[in-house]
Design a protein around this nucleic acid. Sequence first.
DNA 1: CGCGACGTTGAGAGGTTTCAACGGATGTGG
DNA 2: CCACATCCGTTGAAACCTCTCAACGTCGCG
Lengths: 223, 223
Amino acid sequence: MLIRTSEIGGTIKSTNAAVGKSAAADCPVFAMGTTMSFGRDAEIYGEGEPSEFLYKVISGAVRTCKVLADGRRQVGSFYLPGDVFGLEATDDHAYSAEAVTASRIVVTRRIAAGMFAARDGEAAHKLVEFTSSELERAQSHLLLLIKSAQERVVSFLMEMAKRGASPEFDLPMSRQDIADYLGLTIETVSRTLTNLEDSAMISLPSARHVMLRNKGALARVIV
Amino acid sequence: MLIRTSEIGGTIKSTNAAVGKSAAADCPVFAMGTTMSFGRDAEIYGEGEPSEFLYKVISGAVRTCKVLADGRRQVGSFYLPGDVFGLEATDDHAYSAEAVTASRIVVTRRIAAGMFAARDGEAAHKLVEFTSSELERAQSHLLLLIKSAQERVVSFLMEMAKRGASPEFDLPMSRQDIADYLGLTIETVSRTLTNLEDSAMISLPSARHVMLRNKGALARVIV
DNA sequence: CGCGACGTTGAGAGGTTTCAACGGATGTGG
DNA sequence: CCACATCCGTTGAAACCTCTCAACGTCGCG
């Protein structure tokens, strides 16, 4: 049956969110946005809620996730500073969004953005771009899930390095988050990381700090 | 390493495509489209080609697929009559498209559709809808891939039944196509189908003909 | 009738999960 | 300041599932 016990650790519902006004956004769609702060594990929006807003990460990190009927959890994506999320195919959110770490998020009404777009070709183009990048995420995520555990973990690390633009970086998310993103168990993720370290491909000075040591060998793993 | 030998059987490159003109499309975007016929396994467009057109299946069935560097093949989606395909996140096709069986396809220029959309709110809405449905496909496909073999096969069968609007239907695609869609091997697909038949959940009068016998039990499998 | 493509079945190997125990870091209260 | 609880991550051993390799059946077609 392949049940995975991936209960969420903390008390997610403690939505300690602080609101503040803001004009800090380099994209026109977010010009009239409101900045909000979310504590670790705070829910930004829930599964099934109507999707009225667009969100942009200013600082911190966000995960989208879906809890299946049998308790398994699937992480859809991780969003880092600069990333936009909240756009989905349906009117209601198929995934919930939660702050992985304390985060600041710019929020703007989706309809407002849409009306803005109607008068502004560039903004309209931006909206299409957000949706397309979401599709791109989903498709490369899909390709991850047909690979072996080692390939998945290496792909994940390379992706994180690319997004941080450095071969050395901190992971904001837990092993459980990574496991639920990659469709593996925390034990398999942990073992795979240990193996990669033993093979001198990476270093793990601490559990959350990663250094890619041999990019060539890593690239060869994912082919 | 988890290598799967999923070489494509036939000579795909024999693009026996017949062109004909048509006004047969109930969607305005395809009003000015051209109807083309493709033989079994004929390539409709290739991976890496610029995506200039939009396609709609009139009859037959289409699969999109991607061949990975190590020879593994991933089927992205199956498109049945009425489905629109060819819209992707990037300017170039990340997946190729091939006719699963002899198929008739309406083709229209993407740019023409876009220009049409600029003057027509409804058509613009349609285009967004196509992209969103693509995202929805990818997301539910993603959820498939984290499940067990039995869950994947049952989900696939239920989906096919829903799209055909009947608990009894013919599968246009081979076991290899199904396997590459579900991220399994043909042997596992075959064995799983046999198990489902032994459990009286389905019947397989022939390899390509499926009857869902106990929908309740099937629904309980995927939960 | 025999060939080739497709599908099924069997046995064994391999990878991932499961269950369990342990170690390390953090935070709290005495 | 230390003891302790808790959360997070690591490691081990065995079970389980899927894959791999191989052989056999079946169907359609030359």
